[in-house]
């Protein structure tokens, strides 16, 4: 790993998230949605997390902040600056040192003017105005209610609300849909600046293209587990430099590279297969894939595949 010299801001080790659900009658079952997920974010680094929809990317973000619903159970350890994040610590840090840029615009309070929401409980009016100027929102925007905003404006409000103050760890859950390419770039550029000032950024995104220009490393998630963690340059040099068959398939599906979909669908959280989650859709599968597949180091990255070379 290139970043060993830098302190690790966030480390997620072997984390699992499962939901308790009622089956028939009063019997309860646990539904595991994230399994043995591991990644770390160093100070001054942007780690992009990409992967299939429903692979647990947002849940990972919520687990770090401790805002999962009451019926969720988290196993494994999440450490912030070397300290295990307990619910008391999560409460203390979230909103100040650890911030979330949520994915859905319905996180805004529909009955509150957006200026007030951006200031929140900790920011000041000046900070809000600076954030608005930075993201090209006119000062009048402050007086609007969320329904009066366009999709891109709402997005920028969410980003402004998160960056008021000086966060140390930014968890951005798909911050750019609805933004024009220029604004998305501006947003990523801002993350880059924050990272250069020593913050860690966990960037969950589908915009693989843009992520490639700003992230240092990329983690690929599938069906609730990490498949590959690779330096960004491997994604830039093409499918051959990537390690996991799923990462290669992602690369080939980009509109500029072939736009090739992949047959089959992601296994459902209720009945995850044993062994490799991707085996059912993989061309390289052998019997050995149905046993446990651990993460291993390969060519300066990490991969969860026994056939990767």
């Amino acid at each position: 790993m290139d970043n060993e010299s830098k302190p690790v801001v966030l480390s997620v080790e072997d984390v699992g998230v499962s939901f308790r659900m009622y089956a028939k009658g009063l019997r309860r079952t646990a539904l595991p949605v994230i399994r043995s997920l591991g990644l770390d974010v160093c100070a001054g680094e942007i780690l992009a997390v990409i992967g299939s929809s429903g692979s647990g990317k947002s849940l990972l973000a919520h687990a770090i902040l401790g805002i999962l619903p009451g019926n969720a159970e988290v196993s494994g350890t999440i450490k912030y600056n070397g300290k295990t994040l307990t619910s008391a610590l999560q409460k203390q840090y979230r909103g100040s040192e650890i911030v979330l840029i949520p994915q859905a615009v319905d996180w805004l309070d529909p009955l509150m003017r957006v200026g007030k929401q951006v200031i929140g409980t900790k920011g000041s009016k000046e900070e809000m105005q600076r954030a608005f100027a930075r993201f090209g929102l006119s000062p009048e925007t402050e007086r609007l209610y969320p329904v009066q905003l366009s999709g891109g404006m709402a997005r920028r409000i969410l980003i402004s609300a998160a960056i008021v103050g000086e966060p140390k760890l930014i968890i951005a859950d798909e911050p750019t849909p609805g933004l024009s390419v220029d604004l998305a770039k501006e947003t990523f550029l801002y993350f880059r600046e924050l990272a250069d000032r020593g913050a860690g950024v966990l960037l969950i995104t589908h915009d693989v293209d843009l992520a490639l220009h700003f992230a240092d490393r990329i983690a690929v998630l599938y069906a609730g587990t990490t498949m590959e963690i690779a330096p960004t340059r491997d994604f830039l040099s093409g499918a051959d430099a990537l390690r996991h068959p799923y990462s290669k398939a992602l690369f080939d599906a980009l509109p500029q590279n072939g736009f090739r979909p992949l047959a089959g669908s992601q296994p459902y959280a209720g009945d995850l297969p044993r062994g490799c989650m991707f085996a059912a859709r993989c061309g390289m599968r052998t019997d050995a894939c149905f046993a446990d597949v651990p993460m291993r180091s390969l060519r300066g990255g990490e991969v969860r595949c026994i056939h990767a070379t």
Binding site: S52, S53, G151, V208, L250, A253, P255
Partner: peptide, 17 residues
């Protein structure tokens, strides 16, 4: 109206096709 930005690229390709 921006229907596929919340989808991963494989699903995007699948759904657009």
């Amino acid at each position: 109206d921006e229907i596929s930005t919340m989808l991963d690229v494989i699903t995007q390709a699948q759904i657009w096709r």
